[in-house]
């Protein structure tokens, strides 16, 4: 039998009031307690119009404190509120399960103790990126990864897919305390060297920043790989690396399937 107290984790997208889905809004309105992690007062003020019992968890952030500790405290706060018998709605900006540690940890913890806990999806920065840049990740595939992680680890890089490097403005900061904000030049220089193994100097890159207000356009700045180390970034910047070309066929697989290259291309043709 499920215990009293429950958790619904929702995301409000990037544009306050516009991105939230119908059911997520209802969970916010109907909760006993709403715990929020949103980046600005604009979003916070809007949430306060939906429910009078809003608590801001961004108060747990402190300069120089590791985010791992802050996220643990956020998790604990969410879990404690549910265990006290409250119907809790935890609200995060964007998608509540993308680049969000506390939401996943709280759900795991509460479910293991017999509480009802679920997450609803929200509109993420990646969703806006696909829309604003007119990119379909299905055409070439997509590698989506945080920039510092891409730099620090040895892992295969599929240059025939789109590569999306999140938080490029923090590249090289491993501290989880944001102690190197705006000190991205060394990281960018290393990234440029890494990319030059596979891409030419004139390969086009895109700096993208989603817009949080409908009246303001997103930042979409195209530049060459050669210019990467000169670009000015913010904490909201994302780097998009388009595919170098269409991927080559795996001829062994084609032969095993008794297929030719034309057989693969044929269904894509449209007779007019």
């Amino acid at each position: 039998m499920e215990k009293k107290g429950s958790l619904d984790v929702v995301g409000i997208g990037l544009r306050a009031g516009g991105d939230v889905c119908v059911s997520a809004k209802a969970y916010i309105e109907q909760a006993d307690t709403v715990l929020i992690v949103v980046p600005d007062s604009f979003s916070k003020n809007w949430l306060a119009t939906l429910n009078s019992n809003v608590q801001d968890l961004t108060n747990l952030y402190q300069q120089g404190k590791s985010r791992a500790k802050t996220y643990h405290e956020m998790t604990q706060k969410i879990v404690d509120e549910v265990k006290s018998g409250q119907k809790v709605c935890a609200v995060f900006y964007g998608h509540p399960g993308v680049f969000v540690n506390a939401s996943h940890q709280a759900i795991k913890s509460l479910k293991s103790e017999g509480f009802r806990a679920q997450m609803l999806p929200g509109i993420s920065a990646e969703d806006w990126l696909f829309s604003d840049l007119n990119i379909d990740p299905g055409t070439h595939g997509c590698m989506s990864i945080e920039a510092t992680q891409f730099l620090l680890y040895e892992r295969p890089h599929d240059i025939y897919a789109y590569t999306i490097l999140w938080q490029i403005g923090l590249i090289g900061d491993h501290t989880l305390a944001l102690s190197k904000t705006n000190q991205y030049h060394q990281g960018l220089t290393l990234l440029k060297s890494k990319l030059l193994r596979d891409f030419p100097l004139d390969h086009e890159l895109i700096i993208y920043e989603a817009s949080t207000l409908s009246i303001i356009s997103p930042r979409i700045e195209r530049l060459s790989l050669n210019e990467l180390t000169d670009v000015k970034l913010t904490a909201a910047s994302t780097l998009v690396i388009p595919p170098i070309s269409d991927a080559p066929f795996n001829l062994e697989i084609l032969a095993a399937l008794n297929l030719s290259k034309d057989d693969i291309k044929e269904p894509l043709k449209i007779d007019e």
Binding site: V37, V38, P39, D40, S41, F42, S43, T58, Y61, R67, A68, Y71, F92, G94, F99, V100, N101, E146, Q149, L152, Y153, W166, Q167, L170, L176, L178, T181, T212, L213, T234, A235, A236
Partner: peptide, 17 residues
């Protein structure tokens, strides 16, 4: 004016590798 600055990293979510 709207207090809608998202360039401040204070509220940024970081991925834990």
């Amino acid at each position: 004016r709207l207090e809608s600055q998202n360039y401040d990293v204070k509220g940024m979510m970081l991925a834990l590798h």
